[in-house]
Design a protein around this nucleic acid. Sequence first.
RNA 1: GGCGUGGUGGCCGAGUGGUUUAAGGCAGCGGUCUUGAAAACCGCCAAGGGGGAAACUCCUUCGUGAGUUCGAAUCUCACCCAUGCCGCCA
Length: 425
Amino acid sequence: MIDVKLLRQDPAGVRAALLRREDESLVAALDEVLQLDRRWRDLITETEQLKAARNAATEEVARRKRAKEPAEELLATLKASSERVKALDAEIRELEAPLHQALLRIPNLPHPDLPTGSAAANRVVRTWGTIPSFDFAPKPHWELGERLGILDLARGSKLSGSGFPVFVGAGARLVRSLANFMLDLHTREHGYLEVAPPFVVNRATLTGTGQLPKFEEDLYAMPRDDLFLIPTAEVPVTNLHRDEILDAEQLPRAFVAFTPCFRREAGAAGKDTRGLLRVHQFDKVELVRLTRPESSEADHQLLTGHAEAVLQRLELPYRVLELASGDTSFSAARTYDLEVWAVGVGTWLECSSASTFSDFQARRANIRYRPSAGAKPEFVHTLNASGVALARTIAALLENNQAADGSVRIPGALVPYVGTDRLLP
RNA sequence: GGCGUGGUGGCCGAGUGGUUUAAGGCAGCGGUCUUGAAAACCGCCAAGGGGGAAACUCCUUCGUGAGUUCGAAUCUCACCCAUGCCGCCA
């Protein structure tokens, strides 16, 4: 949620910042908020003056009752003013719901340093590793996976529909190995606290991180219980401290969680959907940090580095993209995408997204900290990065490490986990 | 699913219609004392919002919502959450 006070102070500045998201409809949304807020403040001022008078009179009634003095004429006037207050309160409540809803649908302000424009304006920050070359035509991962007997897309479709891959044998073991490798790296070397959260969450939790109310269509829902499957571990983990006031010494908090992620991918049909490129369920190791505002930018760099370390140890060539203002997601202020090159499909695959949300999620989820003892609570900054998503990483691993005979080399960092250095057809 | 019990500030916890402007304690902050610390004692310590240049001032909040009343933490109704026992169950 953006800061309403900032919007009141500098509506033109906020409007200009939001327009960098390349969404013209935001002008009307902001105007609606400003108008509702103006009306709300007028009403609240009037009502509070009335209430102050009423409270004073009520106290006088109490005093007279105790002193056994008559209070009938006061009670009569109080009845009238009390009814007036009740009517005004009702009017205020009717304004607050739409005001709050409108605010929840306004995205975060993009960081001033972002390149302006749509995805075409995304900036390559750096690249790492060497793209492998072959003296044969490299196969896509779905062919390699079928041939190795580790990936069964057809039976996944039978069970649940397309986009629900089944990993079998060494494939299932590879999934487990990757999860353990990443969790070990982040807990032992990067200082993260491992969390095993629920995969099913309520509306308040999804509102806290920004998926609701605007993106309900993207979620798998269980209407009978009004619960949803998590699209990412970011949702339950960021919300761990929802409605809490943390001590300054508790920051930064650094969590790592391995969970499945469920995404309806509504409207994405047909685009890059083959094999493991875009699926409805995939596993992901997620990193989440809660920081003091002044250290969030440095933390963002650190966090991105932690995700990169995974790809480096897996020997996967990648590039880091800084997303342009129009390509940065709803809640984020700034995002670096990590894209791995996959030789079989011949494209960059997004395996991680490392974002800072400034105080946007903290404001929604009401996550605060006390800068020093006795000081006013302030909102923390929240950040997260995939560290990393498994499906596309497996696609790249299979494709980049394939041999002419269809076997696949396992990178050294994974060998202790997988128990072999090569998968054979 | 059935029958109970409960939800009060950062935490614990008292409070059944009007000096509750929420007792008391813990934690925290400041002070006295002390070579220093602890202890003891004294004081300060909820959040959100409105108005104001500021000093300050006002309003709201006792799980949530609705109701009764001049007035609700307290009474009524509904819901949510937690918890105990029973039932079912990996």
